[in-house]
């Protein structure tokens, strides 16, 4: 398996916490520009896998490469984020005491050191970018409202908007439609498909309708390793997957 032309390359990754193997010899490859949906029951290791990719957790063994050449296990969260991996948490995490606009401003791609931030003034280009993103996530009319006052679904979108502002090469999106109405879910699927046109994306989701709507290759995790991989129809026909989900 060649690493070149992959955006994300995990090989033989394992990590255990106090004897519990959260990730067990996991291998996963994502091509550049690909969107992938990851499903799996609770405790399958989906979030831990994201923790490993984003540098929050160090694997006990195995290789994790980004963009074919960068060894992610040697970098911390901030460095990995700067390389171009964005992450949306399972629980929407935005800066609640800031306005929507400020949330996006803090996420905008740019220098990440203290002194520029201290003397920063918003440029016209930045204002335009924020304007664009506000349009995409449909929060333009609430730009001066505090993020705390948004609904759950709106927070999810704001977080996705912050990812966009970061302009990453790879987006890790953890349960983007949890707690959304059907209409919102559809809207989100459309948004993600839009994004996937010029980004690589990994979506972790339980909602099968949503995954079907995305229409991409699916990987099913179980007990920390890949159980099945393929189209949604293929995976959901796989007996082992059925067994894992339904428990025989």
């Amino acid at each position: 398996m060649s690493k070149s032309n992959t955006i994300l390359y995990l090989d033989g990754v394992s990590v255990s916490f106090d004897g519990f193997r959260a990730i067990n010899n996991l291998s996963l490859v994502l091509d550049k520009g690909e969107m992938r949906a990851i499903i799996g029951p609770n405790g399958a290791g989906k979030t831990t896998m994201m923790d490993i990719v984003t540098g929050k957790t160090r694997p006990d063994e195995g290789e994790v490469f980004f963009d074919g050449q960068v060894d992610l296990t040697r970098h911390d969260e901030a460095e990995i984020a700067m390389m171009g991996i964005g992450r949306k948490f399972q629980k929407p995490t935005v800066f609640e005491s800031h306005t929507i606009e400020d949330n996006l401003m803090l996420a905008l791609k740019g220098p990440r050191s203290i002194f520029p931030a201290l003397f920063h003034r918003r440029s016209a280009a930045e204002a335009r970018q924020i304007e664009d993103i506000l349009g995409i996530i449909r929060l333009g009319d609430k730009r001066h409202e505090l993020a705390a006052n948004l609904s759950h679904g709106q927070k999810q979108w704001l977080e996705i908007g912050m990812l966009l502002a970061q302009d990453p090469k790879l987006l890790l999106v953890d349960e983007p439609v949890a707690g959304m109405t059907d209409a919102e879910t559809e809207e989100t699927a459309r948004l993600l498909k839009d994004i996937a046109r010029d980004h690589s994306v990994i979506v972790v989701e339980h909602d099968m309708h949503f995954v079907r709507e995305l229409g991409v290759k699916v990987t099913c995790l179980h007990e920390g390793s890949v159980l099945s991989e393929g189209t949604l129809d293929f995976v959901s026909a796989d007996e082992r997957v059925v067994e894992v989900y339904l428990g025989r």
Partner: peptide, 23 residues
Amino acid sequence: SKYGKLLMAVRDAESRTRFLGWR
């Protein structure tokens, strides 16, 4: 300043700032 907003962002959601690339 933008730094001040960042400061409060760190207070409210530290790991979010990390995943946005801030130290």
